[in-house]
Design a protein around this nucleic acid. Structure first.
Lengths: 230, 230
DNA sequence: AGCGTAACGGCACTGCGTGCCACTGTACAA
DNA sequence: TTGTACAGTGGCACGCAGTGCCGTTACGCT
């Protein structure tokens, strides 16, 4: 305990204890199962007291996704520092890329977490809640941006939900494949295709031009579409 | 206790006990707060033992949204009994309407639940998980329907998420207003507008016609759009 | 060297959720 | 009518998550 007491004093020490706790939790969950692992087990494996565990994580589930708040803040920063005239589509795409970066930072841990969250119902539901936090963040920003537009709230809700869903689809496919380093670009490209499915700018009084432009884009996309191979 | 023991015997008795428990839970949560209400309190208020509570509900949170599974099954039935040639857009709209029906069945209870789930973080996260179950259901069905299409999975994910998000937007606006009887139609209409934002059928080899049709629709929509009032 | 501070471990407590069991009212058979 | 199988109930005890409290201990600062 003397060692542990010393470890937590400096900021580096705290980070080390935190890493040990996450590693112990993930390993124990993987080997012994989530339900059959107690907080005592995790704390003991990391060499700290049970009470200390709860000083690092709010709950047992928290040990699995401890960076959620940080990731959320990073995405929020992307929105806040964006140039006001930047179109919405590339911006939400850029925000999504930020999340990819976080997951790609530690692929092994990401894969372990992915498997756990898709096997344990309790963690699965928690994951849903986390994803919904992202959805709300996207939607909140878009709602501000579309304020005053006809159906602005609806467009914000739809685009926010759609982007997050596409993001998860791409991310989970990559994780299910074991998060290969050479698969990340395909993941990102898959995500970007959502942009083609988003509803465009609302039709105002004077932008019939925009509508015809959308048609042109659609025709161009049509021409370069290769026929499906079946 | 003799009374309670008798109540639970017949199917009607079980339904009655169930209703009493839900009513007691909602009322206690509303008056005393969710965290400050124990399962003992709920059981005592309903006149049954604490152990019996857990025979009716899996958890304390379950007492708030006990019909989730039923509602999910009802929506699944809409998808399964749908005619194979029915277009996707009206079908997912119809599935959404089904959920409206369920909420409109007991507006008072729906409003109480809405307020609770938006004030208590634990219930809020649980609500996210529930909503995600709907999203998965929608997406699963659409994925089967789009199987083989280019970007079929992506379209399914996007449309499923978008429809559920729009549904929640409309539903929550109605609930936040106190679920007025004369506001339900506006709620439904608001939900239906999501159909205009959904990506159309994928551009194949021979459906340039569909694209031009979408343009025509867009122009028509443009013409009947009243200018925003700001 | 002395002192304030902050993180630690341990303890006790509340409350959720579950396994177990004895009890009781009900339905059905002898 | 009496006996019996059964299903739902309440109570008890237990494990575990999460929290408040407190004495202890190591580190930084003066």
């Amino acid at each position: 305990m003397t060692v542990a007491a010393r470890r937590g004093r400096s900021p580096e020490g705290r980070a080390e204890v935190r890493r040990d706790l996450v590693a112990a939790a993930v390993e124990l969950f993987r080997v012994r199962g989530y339900e059959d692992t107690t907080v005592d087990d995790i704390a003991a494996a990391a060499g700290v007291g049970r009470r200390t565990f709860f000083r690092y994580f709010r709950s047992k589930e928290d040990a699995i996704s401890p960076d959620h708040e940080t990731a959320l803040a990073r995405v929020a920063e992307v929105f806040e520092t964006a140039h006001p005239t930047e179109p919405s589509a590339p911006l939400v795409l850029r925000a999504g890329e930020t999340v990819f970066d976080i997951y790609a930072d530690d692929p092994r841990l990401s894969v372990d977490r992915y498997r756990l969250t898709h096997e344990v119902p309790a963690l699965r539901d928690r994951e849903s809640a986390s994803v919904d936090h992202y959805r709300r963040l996207f939607t909140r920003y878009l709602r501000r941006r579309f304020a005053g537009d006809p159906d602005g709230d609806l467009r914000a809700a739809v685009i926010g939900a759609a982007v997050v869903a596409a993001h998860n689809l791409a991310l989970r496919a990559w994780l299910a494949a074991g998060a290969p380093a050479d698969g990340m670009e395909a993941c990102r490209e898959r995500f970007r295709r959502v942009a083609e499915m988003l509803p465009g700018e609302p039709a105002g009084d004077d932008d019939l031009h925009a509508v015809t432009q959308r048609l042109e884009q659609a025709v161009v996309r049509l021409e370069r579409t290769t026929p499906p191979e079946h």
